[in-house]
Design a protein around this nucleic acid. Structure first.
Lengths: 155, 155
DNA sequence: GTACATTGTGGGTAGAAGTGGGGGAATGTG
DNA sequence: CACATTCCCCCACTTCTACCCACAATGTAC
């Protein structure tokens, strides 16, 4: 299981391509070395899954019953804004136009390694979300979320 | 198992033909490379099944008991509005007039990859259904449906 | 520091993809 | 049988994409 970490800013060229950060590339599972699925994230950023990790998401999706309305809605809206992309010979990722527009990515893109996936942000959107969270409230949030997973039982 | 994803808008020409999106074509099972079944969807859109996936639908249909009224009604109305179509040499799909009319498709068509099938929407109908689902209720729905299948991690 | 490899960036170009239309074969109708 | 209609093949054109080469900046080895 790859574990992506770190933050890297790169230029998006006029053709919508971005260099894939070398350090993240070193964390890739060799079997999926060049294939990704990119899609809208739950925040205003894009998620980038290497193929092996994406497969796990698809396995879950494939169990949804398409003959129920709810199943169809979920499947449609999840897959709708997803595309497969590959690195080119210079290790660049093409950002699909629609997705880049939606995420406000233009000129610069920031890659954030986030465990099994990578997030891609526009600098502006990232700033906005950063400044919406003070360090103090982040500390509080961190303690609460991480606290859930140890034996601490204070509520 | 193909897995269609992504959303692509194309023009419908005066003869009722639409280019089949190249990225979806790459997800086709080669053995069914050019044959599809197209039919009325359960939402106001058309469903497009490559031949191999359609076979699975037929298998399900064949298990319906024709000696019940409900069974007959389902079968009749499901197959009634289904047609076989193939890509032409320029990778275009002919949209049968009656089906296109029913789905309100005219001028522009939006393809949405949705796992084992492809949905074809008119831009207007798609907008309408989009605005009927808030992001919050979608998140709730998503968590509920995806959560149902979360228990089986062992293989 | 110098030599060399890797990484990040930009751009040219051939081929693919998307779009539109002409014309002949097949089909249907009076 | 004449005629209209539809379907499918071919051709033409524009736009986009993938692949190629180039080069500057950075990092690494010695």
């Amino acid at each position: 299981m790859p574990s992506f970490k770190g933050q890297y800013e790169h230029s998006v060229d006029s053709k919508g391509r971005v260099s894939f950060p070398a350090k993240l590339r070193k964390s890739l599972n060799p079997e999926a070395q060049e294939r990704f699925t990119i899609l809208r994230g739950l925040e205003p950023c894009l998620y980038l899954y290497p193929e092996d990790e994406w497969q796990k998401v698809e396995d879950q999706l494939s169990q949804i019953n398409s003959f129920t309305k709810e199943g169809r809605t979920v499947k449609r809206n999840f897959l709708r804004f997803a595309e497969d992309v590959s690195l080119d010979n210079q290790n660049r990722i093409p950002l699909p136009t629609q997705l880049a527009d939606w995420a406000g990515i233009d000129g610069k893109a920031i890659f954030i390694g986030s465990g099994e996936r990578i997030e891609v942000w526009s600098p502006e959107k990232l700033n906005a979300i950063d400044s919406g969270l003070s360090f103090e409230s982040y500390q509080e949030l961190f303690e609460r979320v991480m606290g859930d997973h140890d034996t601490n039982d204070e509520t």
